[in-house]
Design a protein around this nucleic acid. Structure first.
Length: 582
DNA sequence: AGCCCACGGGG
DNA sequence: GTGTACGTGGGCT
């Protein structure tokens, strides 16, 4: 038996002899260097069955080809209930059998049937991507490469999650150029004329089909050679993270189609697998096995509230600097006229890709910390909205607490009355005081124990009663959502105190990203209560929170007025007031 | 006011 | 892929 430690970058499963095998992709740390693919054959897919009648249900299920059926108890909506854990051979079997199981008369419902296999694996094993994982087992195969070799490993026993710092990951940004005299390049006609690279390790290079005296430009004979060079560069640089700007929707689809046309295999994965473009709704997402492809454009749209998100605009916002710009419609003439214009095009292209690296270095730490909290792959977390991030965090918490996750609900949004607002009093005010609640809504969730399962009809227990609506929330025991929210806030406070103690700049930076990530999670949760796509959806919880919010704010304003403050503006969780000294 | 649809961003 | 799906703003009814 051997031990390996690695940063968990990515995860998927493959099928071998009809058995699903989990693959963990990682960057080795410690004595061994390079990348690792660790196989785990031991994990099986399962769902929960909620029976009408336990005995009949066990009987009915025995007719189906199932691996195992076990009775167990889980807390569901606050009550301990009996369930059957149904284990199957292959994740696909769930897709095939879930309707059949649902149709059985003895079955009331099926639960947790739509948690993807690799996510289930991460949750059940307590593993967090972008953390260090320790595995025991045997090396199946190992080869050497520029960055320390590749190791194929078979896991025996339980993988362990170790707390550790995250550093030394190789980020490579790329950017392609193509041009058309009349507008956007057309993939059917217009070849790729250059590919630019920049890494956080100082690698900077342009491959092009035209010559240049610039030392960072290397010339290839034709487009086919250029794309082959592109593949070779990714394999030799062997990045953990590949960055692009709008690469999900432009660079990768473009390069893929050109490569197909020219017959170049795009073996970009650490296992030499092909890139895969998946359709996530309207969006494309390009996956490369063992590397994390992040399209910073979507990240910027989510995290920077700007009027638009061109690379130029985002770069200016984050660094206050302008980069060399060539308007899209001039690329064609620069390329064809050559000379100084062409040199400028090369410099522009390199500038773009270097900007992508800079933005990545600045913005990715938050996504990485979020990944380490949410516990799903960075690739996924980077493409999730904050609502989905929270939901996956909660699904993991539910597992930890022994709670059954609710099923998905619906797909609509209900309008709920928001916070209390008083329009500003016109005029120039001096001597202004600002009163605000710290994390108002999260605090209300905790103090009023607002959770779907604490909402009760009867008066038999001690309850908090919501203003305006009269909804009753029992005072104890603490509800699922309130306990998660308080855990999140406690974590944030703990991290803030660590920041205060720490003297190491880098450590403080990481901690600061962590506390920001927790803050985002906490403040997102309340807003999800009125999204029917949220598994813990509850219109009553949503209404109760804002009702208490309005109540607290108005009461506080009245008390302030008694002490001589005159409110001039109020909004949701705070108000401005002037103090009359006359 | 509500519904549907296109767009973003890339050269 | 244990399939699923963005947010917003404008035009139209």
């Amino acid at each position: 038996m051997e031990t390996r430690q690695f940063v968990l970058l990515d995860i998927d499963y493959i099928t071998k002899n009809h058995i699903a095998v989990i693959r963990l992709f990682g960057r080795l740390i410690g004595e061994n260097e390079g990348s690792i693919i660790a196989l785990d054959k031991s994990f099986r897919p399962y769902i929960y069955v909620q029976p009408h009648d336990m005995d009949n249900c066990v009987n009915d299920l025995s007719e189906l080809k199932l691996l195992k059926v076990e009775k167990l108890q889980k807390r569901d909506n606050g009550l301990l209930k009996d369930f059957l854990k149904v284990t199957l051979n292959h994740p696909q079997d769930i897709y095939k059998l879930k309707d059949k199981i649902m149709e059985l008369k003895s079955v009331e419902n099926i639960r947790e049937y739509d948690i993807p296999f690799y996510r289930r694996y991460l949750i059940d094993n307590g593993l967090f991507p972008m953390n260090t994982i320790e595995v025991e087992g045997k090396v199946l195969n190992s080869t050497h490469s520029s960055r320390g070799g590749k190791c194929l490993f078979e896991i025996h026993g339980e993988p362990k999650n170790l707390e550790s710092d995250l550093e030394g990951l190789n980020m490579l940004s790329f950017n392609i150029e193509a041009c058309n005299p009349k507008g956007m390049p057309q993939v059917k006609e217009d070849p790729i004329i250059m590919v630019s690279f920049s890494s956080n390790q100082g690698f900077q290079k342009i491959f092009s089909t035209k010559k240049s005296s610039l030392d960072f430009v290397e010339t290839l004979c034709n487009e086919k050679d250029l794309i082959e060079k592109y593949v070779n560069t990714i394999q030799s640089e062997d990045p953990d993270i590949i960055l692009g700007y709008n690469s999900d929707r432009f660079d990768f689809p473009y390069i893929k189609e050109r490569a197909e046309k020219l017959g170049v295999p795009l073996k970009l994965g650490v296992d030499e697998s092909y890139l895969k473009i998946t359709n996530n709704g309207l969006r494309n997402a390009t996956q490369i096995k063992g590397r994390i492809h992040i399209d910073l454009y979507s990240n910027m749209r989510r995290n920077l509230p700007l009027e638009h998100h061109s690379l130029k605009r985002v770069y200016k916002e984050l660094f206050g600097k302008n980069k060399i710009d060539i308007p899209g419609n001039e690329v064609y003439t620069c390329w064809n006229d050559g000379g100084e214009k062409l040199e400028k095009l090369f410099r522009y292209s390199l500038g773009d890709v270097m900007a992508v690296t800079e933005i990545g270095e600045k913005m990715l730490p938050l996504s990485m910390e979020l990944t380490r909290i949410v516990g799903q792959p960075l690739f996924d977390v980077a493409r999730m909205g904050s609502g989905k991030q929270v939901e996956w965090y909660l699904i993991r918490k539910a597992f930890e607490y022994g709670d059954m996750a609710p099923n998905k609900f619906g797909n609509y949004l209900r309008d709920v009355v928001g916070g209390y607002v008083e329009e500003p009093v016109k005029g120039l005010h001096t001597n202004i005081y600002y009163f605000d609640f710290r994390s108002l809504y999260p605090s209300i969730i905790i103090s009023k124990n607002i959770s779907p399962e604490t909402l009760v009809e009867d008066d038999s227990k001690e309850c908090h009663i919501a203003p305006e609506f009269g909804y009753k929330f029992r005072k104890s025991p603490q509800g699922f959502i309130p306990s998660v929210v308080s855990e999140v806030l406690e974590n944030r406070m703990r991290i803030k105190s660590l920041i205060a103690e720490s003297t190491d700049y880098r450590e403080r930076q990481v901690l600061n990203y962590q506390q920001e990530a927790f803050k985002r999670l906490a403040s997102t949760i309340y807003g999800l209560y009125n999204h029917s796509t949220f598994r813990w959806y509850s219109i009553e919880c949503s209404e109760a929170i804002t009702a208490w919010g309005r109540d607290f704010l108005q009461k506080t304003m009245k008390r302030a007025e008694k002490h001589g403050f005159k409110p001039v503006y109020a909004d949701t969780d705070g108000f401005y007031a002037i103090l009359d000294r006359d």
